[in-house]
Design a binder for these strands. Sequence first.
DNA 1: AGGTGTCAAGCGTCC
DNA 2: GGACGCTTGACACCT
Length: 304
Amino acid sequence: MKIGYPCINRSLPCRGNRTFRLASYSESRLKEAVAENLDCLRQMLQYNVDQGLFFFRISSDLVPFASHPVCQFPWPDHFQPLFAELGRFIRRHGLRISMHPDQFTLLNATDPAIVRRSILELEYHARVLDAMELNATARIQIHVGGVYGDKTAAIARFAEVYGRLPEPVRRRLVIENDERLFSLADCLRVHAHTGVPILFDAFHHELLNRSESLAEAVAAAGATWRCGDGLPMLDWSSQKPGARPGAHAESIDLDRFSRFIAATSGHDFDLMLEIKDKEQSARLARAALEDDARLFRPTLREEH
DNA sequence: AGGTGTCAAGCGTCC
DNA sequence: GGACGCTTGACACCT
């Protein structure tokens, strides 16, 4: 199991998601932002290796406006040496990488223009991972999309679009259960039509489910991943106390985390912690896992 | 320099 | 029919 956090590291002085307003787009502005973002990405990856955090989600802001018509700059060529270097670093240290386009990416939209833009956005994400020369274990996760009043039709539209996705996108795409519209059970229907692997979000599942136990759910989602896809990916978070249901906690609740680990024992996966303080909670989780390992396998204690 | 309104994209919910 | 949350930061303009 590799542990990770998404996109931003608050312990480092750099920022890996620098962007700017569309109105102030220029080629030099873009080059400047991407160079800075790639440099910071390198620092974050180094930090992660140093801290034993081997799973990381790369920010979609890495290349601002990459899929927008305003961007005609051949950024994959221009930055190829830097992408290749990052890729070598990732492979050398066995890091697992994901990306997560935001809520505007809707493959099952009823408006063809939205679908077209969504595919362009996914192609951008695939191009980043391809430029790093990462294999198909590096994944792009999205939600199934909107329901538009008819979930069966919405799933059929998703499957139809999935079938005609460019290969560089399809080989990396995974779907994630959300907390309002498409439950794990719904994602399994999508999987039955398409074969797309399911990234299980344990927190969303708490808010929208069919009473499957955690172990059942993890097993069902895990079974949708094939050889070559890498270990199943999981997202985990916990509820911010007193806040709107679904709000992510500020920092990790280690009791809850230990119960989650215990409930899913026997299943292996790479775990993304979606908690606001990012790398701090990821480090605590990693330490807790090591404590658990010592507890359950006392021989390890003598080695340390 | 500091304060603040606003930012590419869309869904569903609530009023 | 319009504001809001999603995720929450930070750009960019104003004073």
